[in-house]
Design a protein around this nucleic acid. Structure first.
Length: 309
RNA sequence: CGCGGGGUAGAGCAGUUGGCAGCUCGCCAGGCCCAUAACCUGGAGGCCGUGGGUUCAAGUCCCACCCCCGCAA
């Protein structure tokens, strides 16, 4: 006898968790709910979410509701066989209360931060951008408010000094996936007493867009270094030089000698590329990408733009 | 066919009204020097994305295609 689960997920973050449940004989994933196929990439090719591909490879029924709050969606889920719980990992839509009430034991969520810190959509980037030393995953009971439910378990990890958003994302996704099965079983067998979050300590992060990757050079060098790491690879960081967009791929807080005080403008010194930041410190650009060009090392940019000092 | 930039030496780039293929860095050799990644001299390295077309002559103008990238999603 295995527990019946319906899995809600869409992005890459949810992939390890779905795989973990599929591989665990204690569970039977009777259906997967994910977002509709969407146009993606430069040529807008209609592409299924990665979760859908995995579900189909495992012969699991897939639902892709256009809208989750409609009566049609509610009825479609109600008609399915009764399940023990829904598991939601990075699904991408707000699930209404009447659907949360459907499974016998409610809905479990895996979130990529140490709740109540960083409720919201960009928890991984927020942790690095803010300079947090620790992050982790929280497994909780979902309620109607965003990332607000009672906590079942948390696992902590240390953020390294050079870690990017992408790297931390992958580590947290794996951590969530390895933590989820045992916690879920314990929960379904009433072996866990859930703990309410300390709501007064909650912090929030918003959904990121590309515009938020525009670097504000008036900030401190340390803040900018955090931001570039956090937003790598999504949504990326960029600035405008000579009227053209230049993505800043990699940089570090730099050693420098003497600088003009032109904040935000590229300067060279000993074949290295520096930018003065708002606090009087500089960052050294290591890799960048002018619009229409490939990613290049800063030395290549200097040579091509005749910036030799 | 969503909008746009690009493909020229190993890398990054320039190339005018069509008229000998260039610059910086790197690489190789030699020189200078106590020494050097610095400096000097010399050198190698090109199907100018592919295929057609116009022309006495095409990197350059015209047509088609391939590939890379930015925006947007």
């Amino acid at each position: 006898m295995s527990y019946k689960i319906i899995f809600f997920g869409t992005s890459d973050f949810s992939v390890p968790s779905l795989k973990a449940l599929l591989a665990d004989k204690r569970f039977e994933v009777v259906a997967v709910v994910t977002k509709p196929d969407a146009p993606i990439g430069r040529h807008q090719v209609i592409t299924p979410p990665p979760i859908k591909v995995i579900a189909q490879e495992n012969n699991v029924k897939v639902f892709q509701f256009e809208k989750i709050k409609t009566d049609e969606t509610f009825e479609a889920l109600s008609k399915l066989e009764s399940v023990d719980a829904y598991v939601v990992v990075s699904y991408g839509k707000i699930i209404p209360q009447r659907i949360l009430d459907l499974p016998k034991h409610g809905v479990i969520n895996v979130h990529g931060s140490l709740l109540p810190r960083w409720r919201g959509a960009s928890c991984v980037q927020a942790a690095i951008a803010t300079g947090d030393k620790k992050s982790g995953v929280t497994i909780m009971q979902m309620d109607a408010e965003m990332d607000h439910g009672n906590i079942l378990a948390q696992k902590e990890i240390t953020i390294t000094d050079t870690e990017t958003g992408g790297e931390l994302h992958d580590r947290l996704a794996e951590l969530g996936a390895t933590t989820l099965p045992d916690v879920l079983v314990d929960y379904l067998e009433n072996k866990i007493i859930s703990q309410p979050q300390n709501h007064e300590q909650a912090t929030y992060c918003k959904l990121l867009s590309r515009d938020e990757g525009k670097i504000d050079w008036s900030k401190s060098a340390a803040e900018i270094e955090h931001l570039v790491r956090a937003y790598n690879p999504w949504p990326g960081t960029w600035t405008e030089w000579e009227g053209k967009r230049v993505k800043i791929k990699k940089l570090k807080t730099g050693n420098w000698k003497e600088f003009k005080s032109d904040i935000g403008m590229p300067q060279t010194q000993e074949e290295k590329l520096f930018v003065m930041c708002g606090d009087g410190h500089a960052v050294e650009i290591l890799e960048l990408q002018p619009e229409g060009k490939r990613v290049m090392k800063s030395q290549e940019y200097i040579v091509g733009h005749k910036l030799i000092s």
